[in-house]
Amino acid sequence: MDERLRHRAAAVAFLVTLAFLYPTLAVVDELARHLGPALLPLHLFAVWLLAVVAMALLSRRPGRGEEP
C-alpha cells in the first residue's frame, strides 16, 4: 500500500465525513421538508454506497503494465 493509496483513502474518509455530518446533514434535512421525508436516510445510504464504490476503485491493485 503506497503513499498514493494513503492519500486517496484520506480524501475519501474526509469527503464522507463531510457528507455524514453537520452542516450537510442540516441542509439535507431542510430539503427533506420539501422533497419528501425519506430524503435523509436516502442521502446517508447513497453517500455510503458511493464511497464504497469510490474506495473499491481507488484501492484496486494496479494491473500489469498499468501505472500504480
Binding site: R6, R8, A9, V12, A13, L40, P41, W48, A51
Partner: peptide, 19 residues
C-alpha cells in the same frame, strides 16, 4: 435514524485502513 452513527463512525475508520 438515530441508530446510524454507530455504523457511520466505523465506516469512516475503514476508509482509513490504509493509513
Amino acid at each position: 435514524v438515530a441508530f446510524l452513527p454507530i455504523y457511520l463512525g466505523p465506516t469512516v475508520v475503514a476508509f482509513l485502513f490504509p493509513l
